[in-house]
Design a protein around this nucleic acid. Structure first.
Lengths: 201, 201
DNA sequence: GATACTACTTACCGATCGGTAAGGCGTCAA
DNA sequence: TTGACGCCTTACCGATCGGTAAGTAGTATC
């Protein structure tokens, strides 16, 4: 991919994350790197296609990076924990991506199907399979496994998008402390979730 | 408040939750209840003011209802649990509200300050104070208390907005089971969070 | 040197946006 | 009967939206 195209894609990711699909304008995205709207259209044809490319780009980053680098961690439980912690780290590093994922979830109409067949579904499937390998969870239903892991994902994503709000409410320093305390608490949260498997049917 | 105004406010809430501030149009909101755009403008002057009224309306509902009805529950721990569970119930009953809150968090620019001084701040302050009354948490810092409770809120809100996506991914029946399993798991999550206070300084 | 292609520009289009102006209609008061 | 007011309409405005058309500069191919 050409350098210009990559820079356009990055700018688009930022704008879509900041203002949503409707709030972001083609002209604004292009202007961000000193080009005109038509240069952007030249590379991506339509706004919808541009948005699709942005999503695909994010999906590639998240799924390949996270799912692959943890396949060698020994034991389902350790692997699950490592995977979720790196999801948190990834969310902290790439806030724009997380915010876009959340926006996708909120736009439940025509876009919900895109989100499902895209980012969340394969990810959740992998997590559910992993949970059911953890001792005590072998006979758990899919919904129980999903419920357990969904709470953790919620805790991760919600925190990831809250940086500006929390910073403003409690100050920069307090937020920094919060960011440091969070992974540790997340680890105990994961442990607690996995230590209390659902009653066997 | 007149009946028409209430209906306009409800329609606006729905549209803002579904499409965001920029995606929602004044004409579309008004048309939803068989009126013209100018009737809507007549009642609320501008789009910004309408949006502000929608937020205030939601804030009133959530804060008064949730915070007040649980002040009589005995003991900080039971009160905290009851409060969070009713937050979950409220999120399930009023999905539009939750989705609007999440959108507010995502629009971190000029709107973040509104979200903080509005819905989350008093709510979080109350929760932090409550956590620090729980046995074992008396000497905890604000950030530790906040981190603990923020995970739970994240788990609640993330699940509340996921209904359409989860339904589509796993089917209606599976989602129903998930919705039934969630409060129970939430209770164990809360217990786990409060049972592991941070190390005293 | 002609050709063709990529990368971009300016100029322009119709549609839609939020908002203004002015007026019609019903109700209530004087 | 008249005037004032609330509620809502049609008509219209400028700005901005995404997208099209046509053309220009640079570069590589032959």
């Amino acid at each position: 991919m050409s350098d210009t195209k990559t820079r356009l894609l990055d700018a688009a990711t930022r704008h879509f994350a900041d203002h949503g699909f409707y709030g972001a304008s083609m002209a604004g995205i292009a202007k961000d790197i000193g080009l005109t709207k038509q240069a952007l259209i030249h590379h991506f044809q339509t706004k919808e296609k541009l948005y699709g490319e942005v999503l695909r780009h994010i999906s590639d980053r998240l799924l390949s990076q996270i799912l692959r680098t943890h396949s060698e961690v020994p034991g389902p439980r350790a692997r699950l924990e490592s995977l979720l912690l790196s999801l948190q780290q990834s969310g902290a590093d790439n806030v724009h991506d997380t915010r876009l994922v959340l926006r996708e979830l909120l736009d439940n109409k025509r876009r919900a199907e895109r989100a499902s067949s895209w980012y969340l579904k394969p990810f959740l499937d992998a997590l559910i399979a992993l949970v059911k390998q953890v001792p005590g969870w072998e006979s758990a239903s899919d919904s129980d496994a999903l419920a357990a892991v969904y709470q953790i994902i919620g805790a991760i994503h919600f925190f990831a998008i809250s940086e500006p709000t929390l910073t403003q409410m409690f100050g920069k320093q307090e937020y920094r402390r919060l960011g440091e305390a969070y992974p540790a608490r997340l680890r105990t949260l994961i442990a607690a979730c996995l230590d209390s498997p659902p009653p066997s049917p």
